[in-house]
């Protein structure tokens, strides 16, 4: 949910209530949309969807919050659920043990919840129990890490890892302004993960478009100390750098520490994931951080909203299509000083 629509939520809910009084709550008729459109611009089309409807019991389970982004997922999900009087959210303990996460989903099935929003620790490992939930008539919304069967979820919400790389690469190209001998460095996350490979692939392709390439590449492990180590090695290896893309803002805390220690200032840094402290640095403009690309930490919150729509048999407000889409892939925008205010409210604290 964007900042503006959050601010207008109250108005939107009010508008929704008005339309509720006029028309049946599950209505998707054009008239209903028109009523909302008159009330407020920002929440146009979603007004009737925000109106309280049938009670929805949603179970939510995610991996352990051992990373700023993962912690933000659960927090954003809980905050979003609180905004709706018709949602009852049951949150299971965050865990990296697939055995425990499977039993949490089994417990949700026993509790006869209406929907399950699941960010699996391991998509493949949670697939069998997700299929079991779907067979029990429960709407499963898959978040961030994909199941390996299409029967395991009604809707899947994904970030865009390759898109992150493309966004970062395109931004670097713009800033280099045709400088052909620019030295570009990349600090990746855990190298063997498919998501890291996708990010690097996108970065490489976008750079190739303007005739640049990655000259120096190191990999960290998404933690502060690994970021510090990788960046220190990188700065040793490359005497002159023009731009660095760091995949992850959590490890970025360590990366910036290493850069500070080295006293180097000849390059700029683009972050990844989009943590609030990085955005504040970009806004202040007094560090080498000039931009970051977002990997939304609001995926779980979006999952809860879609689960609610699915159970209440409503459509996605601004689409003509009367069913909620099968797959929603979120965008990876570049955040710079110019547009940081738009993204700061939904950024995560690392």
């Amino acid at each position: 949910m964007s900042a503006r629509s959050a601010r207008f939520l109250k108005t939107a809910t009010l508008a929704g209530l008005t339309s509720l009084a006029l028309i049946a709550c599950t209505s998707n008729t054009p008239e209903a949309k028109k009523t909302d459109g008159n009330a407020t611009q920002a929440a146009a089309g979603s007004g009737s969807n925000d109106a309280p409807g049938q009670k929805v019991k949603i179970g939510f389970s995610a991996p352990a919050a051992d990373h700023g982004w993962m912690g933000a997922i659960t927090k954003a999900t809980q905050a979003e659920a609180k905004k709706y009087s018709d949602i009852e959210l049951i949150v299971a303990e965050g865990t990296n043990d697939v055995n425990l996460q499977i039993s949490q989903v089994e417990t949700f099935i026993n509790q006869k919840v209406d929907a399950i929003v699941l960010l699996p620790f391991d998509g493949a490992a949670l697939t069998p129990v997700a299929i079991k939930a779907m067979e029990a008539g429960i709407t499963v919304v898959n978040v961030d890490r994909e199941f390996d069967s299409t029967f395991a979820a009604r809707t899947t919400i994904l970030g865009d890892n390759k898109g992150m790389g493309i966004s970062a690469g395109t931004y670097v190209c713009q800033e280099m302004k045709g400088k052909k001998d620019a030295v570009i460095a990349e600090i990746a996350g855990i190298d063997s993960l498919p998501l890291t490979q996708a990010r690097s692939q996108g970065f490489k392709e976008a750079l190739a478009d303007c005739g640049l390439k990655v000259n120096n590449r190191v990999a960290a492990e998404f933690t502060v100390e690994s970021g510090e180590k990788a960046a220190a090695n990188l700065l040793q290896a490359a005497p002159k750098i023009d731009a660095i893309w760091n995949h992850d803002d959590d490890q970025g805390v360590g990366v910036m520490a290493a850069i500070k220690n080295s006293g180097r200032k000849e390059f700029f840094v683009v972050g990844g994931a989009g943590s609030a402290n990085v955005m504040r640095d970009i806004k202040a403009g007094n560090t080498l951080l000039k931009a970051t690309v977002i990997y939304p930490s609001t995926q779980g919150a979006d999952g809860v909203r879609l689960a609610r729509l699915l159970v209440q048999k409503k459509a996605l407000g601004d689409l003509v299509e009367v069913e909620v889409p099968r797959l929603v892939q979120l965008y990876a925008p570049v955040v710079t000083k110019d547009n940081v205010d738009q993204y700061l409210p939904t950024a995560f604290e690392s």
């Binding site: 043990d97 697939v98 055995n99 620790f121 391991d122 493949a124 490992a125």
Partner: peptide, 17 residues
């Protein structure tokens, strides 16, 4: 047992067991 439950084998299985 874990293989049957998850239909997978993984280096992340059994964390903190």
């Amino acid at each position: 047992m874990l293989m049957a439950r998850t239909t997978t084998g993984s280096s992340t299985h059994g964390q903190l067991y």
